[in-house]
Design a protein around this nucleic acid. Sequence first.
DNA 1: GCATAGTTCAAACGGACGTTTGAATGAGAG
DNA 2: CTCTCATTCAAACGTCCGTTTGAACTATGC
Lengths: 208, 208
Amino acid sequence: MDTPVESTRERLLNIAEQRFGEAGYEGTSLRAITVAAAANIAAVNYHFGSKEALLRAAVARAAGPVNAERRRRLDQLEGSGQPAPEQLIRAFIEPGLDLVLRRGERGAIVARFIGRVAFDPSPRIRELYAAESEPIEKRYLTALQRALPHAAPTAVAFGFVNMLGLLALHQSQALSRAPGTEDPDDPSKLAENLVAFLVAAFDRGLRS
Amino acid sequence: MDTPVESTRERLLNIAEQRFGEAGYEGTSLRAITVAAAANIAAVNYHFGSKEALLRAAVARAAGPVNAERRRRLDQLEGSGQPAPEQLIRAFIEPGLDLVLRRGERGAIVARFIGRVAFDPSPRIRELYAAESEPIEKRYLTALQRALPHAAPTAVAFGFVNMLGLLALHQSQALSRAPGTEDPDDPSKLAENLVAFLVAAFDRGLRS
DNA sequence: GCATAGTTCAAACGGACGTTTGAATGAGAG
DNA sequence: CTCTCATTCAAACGTCCGTTTGAACTATGC
């Protein structure tokens, strides 16, 4: 293992994304986080400044690499001609769902955290996440509208909102699944199943 | 108007579903609710017993009629032979989204409230909603699996989870829509657009 | 050794929370 | 009018919240 020691700052971020993903921002107290992280409660304000700043730092650390990978893949797709809708959908979905499969590691916890923050009940929290992800989302939306010239732009935007929602849904369920509604068979196929579901809906389910 | 007077109990329920839908259960204090409802804070515990009991009562009042209509329509469909997937999807979706359109009335507030409670960050709250809606959901899932014999039951269950998620998404956005991602044109077409989206995904997006 | 900057700590801050109390108020029945 | 029971009320309960304080500790450079 190349984790020689874990700094207080890192432990706080790790526990924060675990607990915020479990019970939400409002439902998680700083005391619960600091106790689990074996840190003093004052450490949060020392390292981050406030509870919300801790959340902001956790969001940036969790969503940053995912969105970076999305940028990388979109750059690559746009570098070689007009991408197909399926390619765009896959390039957006997969970086977010690959996390879900890393159950032994931090991945599934990160996925749940992202999924819950993205659709938190509080508009304040949602905006905090949107600030992190909106630029790359907008790029994908534009690309999808170009890739689906026969559908009205508003219709594609409707589908795009659905894609964001379903991705967050399956991310937030990374560590818990209601019985009887498991993913089809092999959980590693989740991304493929979701892409297939969305591609069908985009290709044939959008009225102009 | 046939609202001669509004009892304290009714005012509390009305404000509760408005505020819980705005900021979530944890993010809304009883004091905020009682002030807005022009009621004393002790009225909540007098009429309901606790904050959670108030939420439970609000969920029952909001979701009850929606699920009743779903039962009615499923009974009717099953009374006349094998229903098509589209009929089932429509019968499930429309009762939940009709609320969204009643912007002048309480409908949109109820829709947002339901959508937020169904996917609240706290498992406790989600279970509280599930207890209300799981029976009818299970009936629809079974009916859908029968209506899609060529798809694996787990695949249909996957699609069903997506349907629940997207419905809750659009319900929760009943009173707020991110700019640039409006519903296609006529908002009254939301149900039709969502049904078309889901039908396409169910018919062609589920791998067996 | 000593000074310095970075980090951790126990303790307390004021405020907001859900809940409870017991008296005051109201309407309806006898 | 009087009794009764449901409802409302101001006030306080104890607890937990995010945040702040100032001292104690740790390590590094001189």
